[in-house]
Every structure is written in C-alpha cells, then in structure tokens.
C-alpha cells in the first residue's frame, strides 16, 4: 500500500469565522506608548478575540501585560517615585514591551486575515478611549501605591 504524501493530506477543518474586523497590530504601538501597559494589553486581548486566536496566545499576552505592569510599578516605586516625568517614560517603555508580544503573536494571523480580503478596523476612537481611560487608571494606581509606600 503506498504511503500517503503528508503534504497532500487534508488539514483545513473549518473556514475562519467572520466577525468584527481586527485592528492592525502595528497600530497598537500608539496606545502602547501614549496609554501604557494596561491600554495595549486590553486592546491586544480584544484584538486576539477578533483574530480568533488560541487560548495560549491570549494567555501569553495577558502574562506579558501583567509582568510588564508589575515591572513598571516596581521600577517607578524604586527609581522614580512620581507619576509624571521619568515615570511616564518607564510606562511607555513597558507599553512597548507588551506591544512587542502583541506584534509577535498577532502579525501572522492578521496578515492571513488580510490575504482573505479583510480590511482592518479603525483604531482612532477605541485607541483614544484606551489611552485616556487606562492612562488615568494607571496613573491613579501608581499615585495610590506611592502614597501607600509613603513616597
């Protein structure tokens, strides 16, 4: 009996579902820098849902986001005990690190979505809301922690 060619065996079980269009992962860099870790993590998780990504990809993003947030708080408390100024740069750097995970996990699925003829959704209003909303949440969280730490 001839051995079946592994390349010519069926591997496609379903057509990817058509839902809400995803955002371009590269575009999430803007909320990452201006809004910080929380903004890019939440937007990234929403985008992962829109791209129908696996649970492991979502957990990787959530884990990176939590780690980056922890690192951002620790660095701010230890080195730059303030909410503005250098602490803002630390927040932006942590946001960029989280965005690198978004880009790493979502670029290929997004390009496959584009090859299927899909158009990206507009990020302007959700991005702005995330920058303002989560930026404020992060600043308040830091202020509370700084007050609690007596700085």
């Amino acid at each position: 009996m001839p051995v079946p060619d592994p390349l010519l065996t069926p591997t496609i079980t379903a057509t990817p579902p058509v839902g809400v269009p995803p955002w371009r992962p590269q575009s999430l860099l803007v909320p990452a820098v201006l809004g910080g870790v929380l903004a890019v993590t939440v937007l990234g998780l929403v985008n992962a849902g829109r791209l129908d990504q696996s649970r492991s990809a979502r957990l990787a993003l959530l884990g990176t986001g939590l780690l980056a947030l922890g690192a951002r708080i620790a660095v701010t408390l230890l080195l730059t005990p303030s909410v503005g100024g250098p602490a803002r740069a630390v927040g932006a750097a942590a946001g960029v690190l989280t965005w690198l995970t978004v880009r790493g996990t979502q670029s290929r699925p997004f390009r496959a979505y584009e090859l299927r003829g899909g158009e990206p959704a507009r990020l302007f209003w959700p991005g702005l809301a995330a920058i303002v909303g989560f930026g404020v949440v992060e600043a308040v969280l830091l202020a509370v922690l700084l007050a609690w730490a007596g700085r």
Partner: peptide, 19 residues
C-alpha cells in the same frame, strides 16, 4: 466563496490526478 474545507477537498482531488 469562503468554503475552505470543500476547496481543499477539490484541490486534493485535482492533485491526486496531477501531483
């Protein structure tokens, strides 16, 4: 037409004839 599993079946049948 977005029917990927059926498209794969048709292409594999074609490749069985002309690999």
């Amino acid at each position: 037409l977005g029917q990927y599993p059926s498209a794969e079946r048709a292409l594999l049948d074609a490749l069985a004839l002309a690999p």
